[in-house]
Amino acid sequence: MKISININSRLKELEVKPNETLLSALRNNGYTEVKCGCSEGECGACLVLLDEKPVNSCQVLAMSIRNKQVKTVKGIGTLYLPHLIQKAFVEAGADQCGFCSPGMIVASYSILKETGNRPSKEDIRRGLDGNLCRCTGYVKIIEAVGMAAEKSLQEETQKPEAVCTNM
């Protein structure tokens, strides 16, 4: 069955099975940047933005999201045009194995968005609560989100938010 989804600002026709999760549909169609750590909605590795709201894509049926907008980590920033959250993760050393990173970046993006780039440490900790990481002990991830928030605030006053366009 074919459905139309807007993924990372591009309209895509995906072939999906009736009971297929969004996670599976995305990965089967090449969006392997969305990771699968548990399929149970516990680890957050598959976190994507659905109409700008973070959801574990393993807990959503692909069929249920017709005409909605999906944003994966690559919709936030790419290797060639990274978002400052991504740069902050690398700078802080919040990237060890990197398997949780795509989900962590999506969660961090939401934290910054929801708090207008002014998250308290508690906002950050709570906002990352759905994303498991076994490598870093979260110390540097929390630090990275704080750094990204600061940079975002600085940039806010200087220029409009960078938009990633896939040409």
């Binding site: 991504q86 993760f89 700078e91 398997f99 990173s101």
Partner: peptide
Amino acid sequence: EKIDGLSLVTGEEKFTD
């Protein structure tokens, strides 16, 4: 900085699955 860092956090790197 990790040489694969930016590739990891932008989802560019490939894992087995």
